[in-house]
Amino acid sequence: MDKRYQLQFIVKEDGQLLRDALADFGISKRTLTAVKFDGGALYVNGEERNVRHPLQGGDVVTIIFPPEEVSEGLIAEYGELAIVYEDEALLIIDKPAYISTIPSREHPSGSVANYVRGYFQRQGIASTVHIVTRLDRDTSGLMVIAKHRHIHHLMSEQQKSAQLQREYEAVVEGHVKIEKQSIKAPIGRKDSSIIEREVCADGQAAHTDVTVLKQGNKNSLVRLKLHTGRTHQIRVHMAHIGHPLVGDDLYGGSQQSLDRQALHCVFVQFPHPLTGEVMIFESQLPENLTQPLNN
């Protein structure tokens, strides 16, 4: 059985060349080159064709993508994945805290990527792991994972055009006085650290919307919408306005009541990369994250 990833679509009008129809379907030039030269194939009505083949309305085009090479450094592990949704293109999970998205020198195993690779092996999915939306190790919540490089490409294009929307909830120190505000402050790497980021004039543009949901005794529960996806964006922006996340000691938050940043991805929305259907996923804020509101 051919385990290579494949897609089909039906041509809607006469006169297009196959290469033009593929471009309309979202196949990039780079992907098409890989299909042509790295072990893929193109079929029209079950017969192999080249990109100059003229199409008629109603033709069925099948794209067979070349095999994906899985990194030898990514070890397959078999742990629990909290799967929220799955189809032939996507895997949506609800990540707990204290688990890295990808392996690192400090945490070479036990990452989401390790577990997803193990899951793909068991399911017979001939693909490497494509993380679309990363979360920091100590951040919990919804994550989007693509099952193929082409799907990853389509989702990356959605991120660039702001079609993929993410929202978070966080408990931050102090009472945030402005009920709704938009933080537009560029973020770059801090000179004295390989990990820490900061707001700086020569950084990359970063935009976060902040809405206050609830005021506690000393802290605030806020909802955050990302318009860009910079590393540590929420953590840096909230610290920048004087309200670091509870538990985020890297950016000035206290760990007295929580040993990790109080941050959870609660909402993801995007059009499905193949069907265009609007997909909406939500996750509840873990109870232990709301406890600092009452301290």
Rank of each mutant, 00 (worst) to 15 (best):
Q123T: 00
I99W: 08
A162G: 00
Q163P: 00
A113I: 11
A97D: 00
Y115G: 00
A126W: 13
P103H: 11
M155W: 06
T133I: 12
A126D: 14
S161V: 05
R117C: 07
D138P: 01
H148D: 02
S109F: 15
F120S: 01
S156I: 03
S111W: 06
A146T: 03
M143H: 02
V112R: 11
I145H: 05
A113E: 10
G141E: 05
I145K: 02
R105T: 14
Q159S: 06
T133W: 14
R105C: 01
T101W: 03
V132R: 13
T139C: 06
Y115Q: 08
M143Q: 03
P108K: 15
Y115C: 02
T133G: 12
T139A: 13
H107Y: 15
S161C: 04
I131S: 02
R105I: 10
Q159G: 02
Y119S: 05
R149S: 09
I151T: 04
I131V: 12
K160Y: 01
P103F: 14
Q163M: 12
S127G: 05
S127A: 13
S104N: 07
A97H: 05
L142Q: 05
V132E: 02
V144I: 13
G124S: 13
A146P: 00
L142H: 10
S100P: 09
H153R: 08
H130G: 01
K160A: 10
L154P: 00
S109Q: 14
L154I: 05
R134A: 11
H107S: 12
H153T: 06
A162K: 07
A113Q: 07
I145L: 13
A162F: 07
G141F: 11
H150R: 08
N114I: 11
R137E: 01
Q158R: 09
M143D: 04
Q159D: 01
S109H: 15
I99Y: 08
L164K: 00
K160H: 02
A146S: 10
F120P: 03
I151G: 01
S109T: 15
R122V: 08
A146G: 07
S161P: 01
R105S: 09
E157M: 04
Q158S: 04
S104V: 08
L164M: 03
R117H: 15
A126L: 14
I145D: 01
S156F: 07
I102R: 07
V112L: 10
I102M: 14
R134G: 06
S109A: 14
S100N: 09
H150V: 06
Q158F: 07
H148K: 08
S140E: 05
I102P: 00
D138T: 00
G124F: 11
G118C: 10
A146Q: 09
L135W: 11
L142R: 02
S156D: 09
H152I: 11
L142C: 12
G124T: 09
T139Q: 03
R149E: 10
N114H: 13
K147R: 13
E157N: 02
D138G: 04
A126E: 14
R122Y: 12
T139N: 09
H152F: 15
I99D: 01
L135M: 08
F120W: 15
H130E: 04
V116P: 03
D138Y: 13
V116K: 12
N114T: 09
S109Y: 15
K147V: 11
D136L: 05
M143V: 14
M155R: 06
R137F: 04
H150A: 09
K147Q: 06
